[in-house]
Design a protein around this nucleic acid. Sequence first.
DNA 1: CCTGCCTGTGCATATTGTCCACCTCAAACG
DNA 2: CGTTTGAGGTGGACAATATGCACAGGCAGG
Lengths: 157, 157
Amino acid sequence: MSIDELDGRLLELLAGEPRIGVLEASRRLGVARGTVQARLDRLQSTGVIRGFGPDVDTGALGYPVTAFATLEIKQGQGADVRAHLATVPEVLELHTTTGHGDMLCRLVARSNADLQRVIDRVVGFDGIVRASTAIVMENPVPLRIVPLVRQAARESG
Amino acid sequence: MSIDELDGRLLELLAGEPRIGVLEASRRLGVARGTVQARLDRLQSTGVIRGFGPDVDTGALGYPVTAFATLEIKQGQGADVRAHLATVPEVLELHTTTGHGDMLCRLVARSNADLQRVIDRVVGFDGIVRASTAIVMENPVPLRIVPLVRQAARESG
DNA sequence: CCTGCCTGTGCATATTGTCCACCTCAAACG
DNA sequence: CGTTTGAGGTGGACAATATGCACAGGCAGG
């Protein structure tokens, strides 16, 4: 289920102009519409493309502060902590990791002051032993997949 | 730029079924098509919705390993390091932060062994003093925005 | 009263999903 | 070695649907 060069170009095109339709894509890629349709279907059914969810800017939503928190969890409390964090809207993402901490989560808040409230809510839970927070100042490389897709496509051909 | 309750429901709907069109959305929300169109336009022009980029699963692409690396940067080398990291396809995201490290980046790799290669490439650069890596084992809360959107919508009404 | 927003509606155009027959290439098979 | 088979691409067709755009009317708050 690897990606070939055409898939790569298709993904790249979609990443650049997501609203473009199958027909327009086929024109730009210089292939038949059915081909694009088939590729898209395959990419979606193999799970390479999970979906086309709207890309929401939390800043514009009123949550301009982003932070990452590393959490240390009490033995055996993992499941409880996960459940707890899942109930906090400001927790956008949660990973369990190896290394010094046990979990890493991405938070947002309305302000630096508000971040304190969010953190209190996050760590105000029994299973969490320690938390260390890093506030994001700049985001020089926003989440991107095009370079990786390009590499994946190249390595398959 | 805040969000009202209708915007919230629209975003939620789009997040759940991104491929649905304006017409279908208007049916589900019980409002006129023009209204949905206007709301969508506004959400996009105010930047709340950045776009509808394809949600690519790096695992399905052949990069099942995710890791977060905290980097400590030599004074004044920030710009160079940013430029360096931007050239590494496996760097999906990069933030500059407060706290113990100076930067935090999200990496992917083809395998744990491959991760070593990626890390070597990332830290094999003059401006980087120290790096500590946390490998992601599980992702109990994948990137989500619905709960936050719901809260933002509630707080505006 | 006026402005902004939503509604319901209509229209011409473009796109979609889904068929089909045909072609080519490469791999599997006799 | 020649042949069969299958997968994938092509170009074209079709009805059904969605889109962009425009319009007039209703309703609320300033």
